[in-house]
Design a protein around this nucleic acid. Structure first.
Ligand SMILES: Nc1ccn([C@H]2C[C@H](O)[C@@H](COP(=O)(O)OP(=O)(O)OP(=O)(O)O)O2)c(=O)n1
Ligand SMILES: [Mg+2]
Length: 590
DNA sequence: GATACTGAG
DNA sequence: CTCTCTCAGTATC
């Protein structure tokens, strides 16, 4: 075991200047200039920040919930420490031997041959808003609403204003804080622009969100023949500097980047010289070892607030300490967790690109509202969530075999209930018929909810085969009226949800005579529903969103339990095609 | 298999 | 007044 990971690291200061290459740009008077005013007159220190936050939240239901949550974590930690106490020398010795073997294997698998870059836009949403409204540039601002902030600019961060903080608390920390509502379409458009830059450096880049991506530039470096001025910078640093410059020229926004031999390290590195900087970690084992040694475990992607607390309780703060305790950790945590801790502490990370086109495993839709126990309101909310989810499923050409309802009480306690469906579906009515009973069994006169959500999982994709038939349908001249391919009823005036409901029912060959109107929940005979629904919908959309009372649901005959006719979405490869064709049509119209 | 928990952005 | 939303993976029973 003398080949332990940290056994041969030198004493050189590997963070000295010749290794830590910070490469800022020097655009005169651009965004994001932190007037580095010293012991900030306006700045708030940590004490003051937490005091204000504390005062703003004390006594609230949210605060109480957080407290209870923390108590559960403390109990878990106490458990962990008890478990640790019970471990014998003998067990530790055995574990140590086992882990030693794993360490050797991991070490053998270490690959320093590839160059990964993690690119992360600086204060992304806020930077876009500042770019487009110069009056915001020298002011503390955040993007979001009074209830929640998505991010803040760097000036606001000095006051402690951060992402995932409610806006009203942000304003207590910083009375001059300007809160701008988000423009997601804009961020998507900006993302599309700099994504083209990513693609030039790695056509296989992997986007993690609208503002960050991993690139493997190994290949690019091999092919890059650009002649550059002599400099202290490595080839990789030059290239990444170019990349960031290109992003800036294309968007007027700055990005930060980390360059390292794997994605885990690249991500950590992108944070080091943020904003508008980059950090290069040389692909040499001792350099990586030294780097990781001092690294706080919290910096590793996957180790969050809770795990950090647990590790801290074991006396582990840095990755070096985590490596020292590897045998103990293998006894206290699951195999998966222990292995991931070990990899982090050795500075090992992924050296290949994640599947960016991996199929989705779930699709969900949830909404927070004013806490209520009103049954009609909740059922109505539930139905809307199902309808919206259904549209999403159709758009993505996915059907669900399981559906989950999520409820959050006014005290912030969350409950989820799943139900497996007899047949995969994307039909809003079907989803709804399964979800509503789950909702009802959780409702109690006393209990008020502040959030409801519906999730589709166990997804199956509609086949490409079906997709092609759909294309044929779409080729119809745009002037022609859209008819239901099964019953030939005109569908021109119906909304996406209604067309969905109609087609699904028609295509399923359902024998059911009663059809429930998705708007008013009333039941109608098949030939009448389309006309009714069109008018009903017109009325509904013109009224305020918070319609308290939908008409009472009358239920004719049998089948309370949301039973789905067996052939609802079975068979009919061809007809399903038709269905999706319709939706694509509608989508391109709107 | 169902539900809760953790983490990310 | 006012503490998000979506998705993935893991833990626990
Ligand atoms: N809880 C969160 C965290 C982030 N975001 C959004 C807003 C951010 O602009 C964007 C990118 O997230 P980052 O963590 O990269 O944060 P920023 O880009 O805003 O700042 P930084 O400069 O620290 O990267 O994602 C969000 O909506 N909700
Ligand atoms: Mg960012």
């Amino acid at each position: 075991m003398n080949d332990d990971f940290d056994s041969d690291t030198g004493d050189d200061d590997l963070f000295s200047d010749d290794i830590n290459h910070d490469v800022p740009f020097h655009h005169a008077g651009t965004l994001m200039e932190l007037n580095d005013n010293k012991a900030g007159m306006a700045d708030l220190d940590k004490e003051k920040i937490s005091r204000i936050i504390e005062e703003a939240s004390k006594g609230s239901k949210f605060y109480d919930h957080k407290k209870k949550q923390q108590e559960r974590i403390d109990a878990k930690i106490a458990d962990l420490l008890r478990k640790k106490k019970a471990i014998t020398e003998e067990q530790l010795k055995n574990a140590s031997a086992k882990v030693g073997q794993i360490v050797r294997n991991l070490e053998k698998s270490r690959d320093l041959s590839r160059t990964f870059v993690h690119v992360d836009m600086d204060a992304f949403y806020a930077a876009v808003e500042m770019r487009d409204d110069p009056s915001l540039r020298d002011k503390p601002m955040a993007v979001g609403g009074p209830g929640m902030l998505a991010t803040s600019n760097y000036l606001a961060r000095r006051f402690g204003v951060r992402a995932a903080m409610p806006g009203f608390i942000g304003q207590k920390l910083c009375p001059d804080l300007i809160i701008v509502p988000p423009n997601f379409e804009k961020y998507r458009a900006v993302n599309a622009i700099f994504s083209e830059v990513f693609a030039k450096y790695d056509p296989n880049y992997s986007a993690m969100s609208l503002d960050e991506a991993y690139l493997d530039i190994t290949e690019f470096l091999r092919l890059d023949q650009n002649v550059r001025k002599p400099s202290d910078l490595s080839h990789a640093e030059e290239v990444v500097s170019d990349l960031r410059e290109e992003i800036f020229l294309a968007t007027q926004l700055t990005a930060s980047a980390g360059i390292a031999p794997n994605t885990l390290l690249a991500k950590v590195c992108s944070d080091i010289n943020k904003p508008n900087g980059q950090f290069y970690l040389r692909p040499e084992r001792p350099v990586v070892a030294e780097f990781v040694e001092k690294l706080s475990v919290r910096k590793a992607c996957g180790i969050g607030k809770v795990t950090e607390q647990m590790l801290n309780a074991l006396g582990i703060t840095t990755c070096a300490e985590m490596f020292e305790q590897r045998a103990l950790l293998s006894l206290l945590f699951s195999e998966i967790s222990a292995l991931s801790f070990l990899r982090v502490s050795m500075g090992l990370g992924s050296t290949f690109m994640g599947d960016s086109d991996a199929p989705a495993k779930s699709v969900s839709n949830e909404r927070t509202f004013k806490a209520t126990s009103d049954a009609d309101f909740l059922r109505d909310q539930c139905r809307r969530l199902c309808e919206e989810l259904s549209e999403d499923l159709v758009r993505k050409q996915l059907q669900a075999k399981s559906v989950t309802i999520k409820l959050k009480t006014d005290t912030f306690d969350v409950k989820t209930r799943v139900r497996n469906l007899p047949e995969a579906t994307w039909n809003a009515d079907v989803l709804c018929r399964h979800v509503v009973p789950m909702l009802e069994s959780e409702m109690a006169p006393k209990r008020a909810f502040r959030l409801m959500g519906v999730r589709a999982s166990n997804l199956c994709e509609k086949s490409a085969n079906q997709q092609s038939t759909l294309d044929a349908i779409l080729k119809q001249p745009s002037g022609t009226e859209r008819l239901c391919p099964v019953c030939s009823t005109s569908l021109a005036k119906l909304s996406l949800a209604l067309v969905n409901a109609h087609l699904d029912r028609c295509l399923s060959g359902s024998q059911q005579d009663d059809v429930q109107c998705p708007i008013c929940s009333g039941f109608f005979r098949r030939p009448e529903i389309e006309h009714h629904a069109a008018t009903c919908e017109g009325a509904a959309t013109s009224t305020t969103p918070s319609v308290k009372s939908a008409p009472i649901r009358k239920r004719g005959a049998a089948r309370e339990d949301g039973f789905v006719p067996r052939d609802e979405c079975q068979r009919k490869p061809k007809k399903q095609l038709t269905l999706s064709a319709f939706f694509d049509q509608r989508k391109s119209e709107s």
